[in-house]
Amino acid sequence: MIDLSVKIGGLKFANPILTASGTFGSGEEFSHFFDLNHLGGIVSKAVTPEPRIGNPSPRIAETPCGMLNSIGLTNAGVKQFVKEKLPFLQSLETKVIVNVAGKTIDDFSTVIKNIEDAGGVDGYEINISCPNVKEGGMAFGVDPIITGKITGQTRNATDKCLIVKLSPNVTSISDIAIAAENEGADGLSVINTLVGMAVDVNTKRPKLATVKGGLSGPAIKPVAIAKVFEVVNAVKIPVIGVGGIMELNDVLEFLITGATAIQVGTANFVSPQISEQLVFDLKNYCQKNSIQTMADIIGSLKI
């Protein structure tokens, strides 16, 4: 019997395949494509204390093997989230992680407290790495002191699994990772999008209304692998690999490098059933290669 389960903090996921925030809505949008309970977990779109309408159009631009986005944390606010999105998530057996964002340090614990009162989620992913907002977002995640403060405060707000999502747009991702670990994070998601820009040569205008945006997709996978490598060597807590996962080999690459789990992001837009497919593919791979537990693969990198 193959055991695909992995643990982050006290939280056990049935398998290491999760979905990345902002690419999976609140799950319901995918519920007619496959049984969401086959997934290790779902990470919701970011939730902020107040509603956010997000950035002007255009918000999307395709680039070679990837895409830029500048959505701007569009969401209806935590109260609407609890009312309209949470009941569906609560009905799932798969693990549910709510991505939490904010403009101020206090915003993060405000969101968590609102959701804790409602109950029914398994953990939180602290988004201090969104490149598309003027206040908060990545500005927090490039600073180890603020990262530590937000992690500490959110740690006090919940006993549930606490994951901090890190930005690659920093000089030393290890310093940020250590700051989050020291303040009680159970795990780290590595990485959020890379700051990128594209220009329409005919109009000479940036392709995004916000000029710059976040780059995702297979184009960023090598960067993500390198950042996971750096972070797993800097901290003891589990790392969740994120960035450009499209197929089984990408999953294996992250796990071998030392990630305990992975998140599928941009691929969900292209192949809505891909995250479930990856669970099946991983299981088959383990069967064929006589792998009994995930510990046999995770961190098996040979240098």
Binding site: T23, E29, G54, P58, I60, E62, M67, I71
Partner: peptide, 17 residues
Amino acid sequence: ETQMACGFGVCMGCNVT
């Protein structure tokens, strides 16, 4: 018609005023 990444209400990339 707009740019969109997913087409089914997830990416939030196809906003209009």
